[in-house]
Amino acid sequence: MSASDPARRPMRRTIRGGRPYFFDDPAIDKILNMVVVLGSEVWTLRERLAALEAIQVRQGSLASGELDAHDFSTEDEARLAGERKEFIDSLFRVLQVQVEEPRTQPVKAKAKPKAKPKGKTARRPTSAAKGRKTRR
């Protein structure tokens, strides 16, 4: 897949205000998100494979057993490694949201850390108490 134009400032893809969570533990919503993204990629592969097979059958160029016997060239291996990384990043993109904020905060934010409850109860921020599920 060709990359985006490096001369352009990329469009922002994160949502201001975050997204709402519904399960008692927001981790469940996040995992569900991953499952869906994974499903999307599985489906994408199936469509691609179907297209490939259709073309090959039309051209009569795929012999039986040929796919299973195939090994990738070094260049193909390297390209696939890059694409695999992109795939994994996209699978876990939902976790980035929480990480991105502190990353882009100026350093002075470190000097005054917000008091956060420790231990098991730390998984839900206090804003969840306002009736609406956590937004992160």
């Binding site: 897949m1 060709s2 990359a3 985006s4 134009d5 352009r8 990329p10 469009m11 893809r13 949502i15 997204r19 709402p20 969570y21 519904f22 399960f23 469940i28 919503d29 569900l32 998100n33 869906v36 993204v37 999307s40 993109r93």
Partner: peptide, 24 residues
């Protein structure tokens, strides 16, 4: 609800890569 939010997000996310490449 959780699936609807995820799907809503993916609506836009499914467009971004092609759009980003096609902007010029």
């Amino acid at each position: 609800s959780s699936l609807r939010v995820t799907t809503q997000d993916l609506v836009w996310q499914s467009v971004f890569p092609a759009l980003e490449r096609n902007r010029g």
